[in-house]
Design a protein around this nucleic acid. Structure first.
Lengths: 253, 253
DNA sequence: CGGTAAGTTGAAAAATCTCAATCACGGTGG
DNA sequence: CCACCGTGATTGAGATTTTTCAACTTACCG
């Protein structure tokens, strides 16, 4: 399912839009998952010009990097991203994985510069939402303003959930929680919540979960041995979602 | 320095404002650290009515709890808070400590209900900022809108920093980073960055840093033995800030 | 002045990491 | 078409870090 890398673009930065076609939230299938969620039919024409262009980001390439000037936020249209932050001495932490309908770049508002790297894990497309337009439009369209605030707040709540995971859970619980989160988000998007293809390596999963890649691998094997999963490299089948859920909170509740 | 607990209010919820006096950002000394930062003199009168009241929160008491309906965000005027989230099986994670000028309750926008508990660690006062007023006023006052977005974004960036800490650092690095963060914020507020009095227990520090309280205690002792700190219970003196900084990133950079 | 909550310290147990070997697969080139 | 190469994944064994359990100390509050 992964499209092949475009070797000549692999090490370049995100460039010009491949398809500068007029883009239109009103006809986008991700409408209800994305920024315009809650905007009524009648109001959709007011969102005209919110999304200026689309941008293709080949696998392995950064949409933006730590330190880049912040000008826009991005909505994932197709594909899959990771965001990561790093220490001065080179250790890094994946802060999230983003799929269709999710927003990237919100961190940049705080300092006018991006504070993390966003890297495509497969060939992807994003909608470019110039931040100035978003601010001015959300002064006029109340539901847009509210929805944008909700998205920012939701990101904070999500982050708190990740802190809880990193601060209190052991390896098996972390991986179980991670898989359930992925399947739940895939399900929202109309995919099976039993079968999934991971878009990231064991190392990237480990970086997100605060574990080494070997620990991730061992934990996959354990969950497989226990009959909760079927693991074949990146293809995962969830055999027993109930039991998987129970692993997140072993004490039960 | 800690004010004593008011025993009879200890187990009650945050109640009515003790001092329903007209509150005014324009004359508040926290102006530049807080929500109105960046609002010009001329515009200050437009912020009239943004802060409806003040609220006293005695030590140990919750300003809000997970599940409470979300109606307002709160700016800490005096005192000190922690926020925490918890799992169904009762483990919890402190997600942050908030001091004067910092905002509480932003998590509530996402679902119209608070998603964490905010508990005063000493007798505190907050300014109540009804969320509806904030949204409508920020549609009119551009700099307020922008500042509010910056605060939301800054919280996201802060959370990513905590994830990095929880995901990649060992105990000593975590504690060093924590202390430097505290001293830096105290310094911003005009306090010494060498001497500080912790407002929280070892257990709360541990919960924030993803460590057990014994590990926190041992790590304090280690840093003291190494001559970087002087630790007497909650009174901490930073003897060698440089060296402390070096402990955060032992590989150097 | 006693009781309780908070903090410190030790020793053993447990979880995770590190280092190393091996395996599997996809892509490449002969 | 097949052998080979490189990346990613798995597994094992030993080292390290942190946790757990327990004893004890200290400070503070009533």
């Amino acid at each position: 399912m992964l499209t092949t890398t475009q070797p000549n673009a692999r090490h370049a930065r995100a460039g010009e839009p491949t398809a500068p076609l007029k883009v239109d939230c009103a006809h986008c299938s991700l409408r209800d998952l994305c920024l315009p969620s809650g905007v009524s039919k009648a109001e959709f024409d007011r969102l005209d010009g919110l999304v200026s262009t689309r941008l293709a980001v080949p696998r392995g390439q950064a949409l933006f990097r730590n330190g880049d000037p912040f000008k826009a936020v991005y909505a994932v249209r197709t594909g899959f991203f990771k965001t990561r932050v790093s220490t001065e001495d080179g250790r890094d932490q994946v802060t999230g994985f983003q799929m269709a309908g999710e927003l990237l770049g919100l961190d940049g508002i705080s300092t006018d510069h991006h504070n993390c790297d966003a890297v495509a894990l497969e060939d992807s497309q994003v909608c470019v939402i110039p931040y100035a337009s978003l601010e001015s439009l959300s002064r006029e369209v109340e539901v847009l303003q509210h929805q944008f605030h909700k998205i920012l707040s939701r990101e904070i709540v999500r982050d708190h959930g990740v802190m809880l995971l990193l601060g209190t859970m052991r390896a098996e619980e972390r991986l179980a929680a991670f898989l359930l989160n992925l399947t739940q988000r895939l399900h929202q998007r109309g995919f099976s919540s039993a079968a999934l293809v991971l878009r990231m390596t064991r190392e990237e999963i480990g970086s997100f979960l605060g574990l080494k890649l070997e620990t991730v691998s061992r934990t996959f094997s354990k969950l497989q041995d226990d009959g909760l999963l079927e693991v074949r490299h990146r293809e995962i089948r969830v055999l027993d979602p109930e039991a998987l859920h129970a692993r997140v909170n072993p004490a039960g509740a």
